[in-house]
């Protein structure tokens, strides 16, 4: 098949871009490509998150593993996550500067009649590139625990690079909304109704950017979806446009590595001729 004729080139149109969300329309490509992009943004874009916690002291009412779990879920600025190695690719035995970031937390409550909040702002990072995210000076931070007088938490955290396929804490996305064919012209879904479909199923906002069916339009059973609506909301660790860019990069890397795997297979299999000549 012709890769893409000039009139049929894939296209991306950005509709909205803010600090924490992006809305775009992907056109003239197929469902598998749109879905691959969606899946990679959710689970294969690398970020930094706390992965190991060493407890030196914990006299709070919360159990160690409970606090460790909460620390893992705190978003760390991951804009420069590509500058750090995956632990498995590093030559060190445990954790070093090239594959990890150390963060320390030491809070003690000395107040008499009130509790003390332990928040993500109390985490002190050894690397200024990877710090817990904040929304300006007024941001109170993310609450981790509350301490009464005399209680104390002292921990050492090791943050590492990872992907959400392994643990959801590494996902840069809070949500990825994905839709195609808002008018259901392709009949990929069936609306359950009481009486009137139009009354009971309100139109999605993407319908404004799509083409409504004509009143006498006949069903085209050969039609394929080719217009995809995305809306990505970040958790704050990465800019939304960077998530999309990194997803494209990751997708290219994945295809290339399969390509390499295919080419390294150019040896006779079961006595058959190598297939090198055909491409």
């Amino acid at each position: 098949m012709d890769l893409f004729s000039p009139a049929n080139k894939p296209e991306i149109r950005i509709q909205e871009l803010t600090g924490e969300r992006i809305r775009f329309i992907l056109t003239n490509t197929d469902l598998s490509m749109a879905n691959a992009l969606r899946r990679i943004m959710i689970s294969e874009v690398a970020t930094i998150a706390i992965d190991m916690v060493q407890f030196d002291l914990n006299t709070s009412v919360l159990a160690d593993e409970f606090i460790a779990h909460r620390l893992g879920l705190i978003p760390l600025d991951s804009t420069e996550a590509d500058k750090i190695k995956y632990p498995r690719d590093c030559n060190c035995s445990g954790a070093c500067k090239e594959c990890s970031v150390e963060l320390n937390l030491h809070v003690k409550c000395t107040e008499e009649d009130t509790t003390k909040d332990v928040t993500s702002k109390d985490l002190v990072s050894h690397d200024p590139r990877f710090t817990p995210i904040t929304e300006g000076p007024k941001d109170a931070g993310i609450l981790i625990a509350k301490l009464r007088k005399g209680q104390e938490i002292k921990v050492k955290c090791i943050a590492k690079k990872g992907v959400a396929k392994e643990h959801a804490k590494w996902s840069p996305c809070a949500a990825v909304a994905f839709e195609y064919d808002p008018f259901n012209k392709l009949r990929h879904t069936h609306y359950w109704i009481e009486e009137d479909e139009k009354k009971e199923w309100p139109q999605s906002k993407n319908a404004n950017d799509d083409f409504p069916p004509l009143d006498d339009e006949i069903f085209d059973f050969t039609a394929k979806p080719n217009r995809f609506y995305f809306e990505i909301e970040t958790i704050g660790s990465m800019k939304p446009e960077d998530i999309v860019m990194n997803a494209f990069k990751k997708l290219l890397e994945k295809i290339s590595s399969i390509q390499m795997g295919l080419h390294s297979n150019d040896v006779p299999i079961n006595g058959r001729e190598p297939t090198r000549d055909v491409f």
Binding site: L3, F4, K9, P10, E11, I12, R13, I14, L17, F24, L26, T29, M33, E241, V244, M245, F248, K249, L251, L252, I255, S256, I258, Q259, L262, H263, N265, T275, V278, F279
Partner: peptide, 28 residues
């Protein structure tokens, strides 16, 4: 041969994703 068609599919995918990536870079 199947190997040739898979190789072509992968090549086409690289072109398509690469194209989309540059499109996105220009637009943002």
């Amino acid at each position: 041969k199947p190997e040739a068609m898979v190789a072509k599919a992968l090549n086409d995918l690289i072109t398509e994703v690469g194209y989309l990536r540059t499109k996105f870079m220009v637009h943002k």
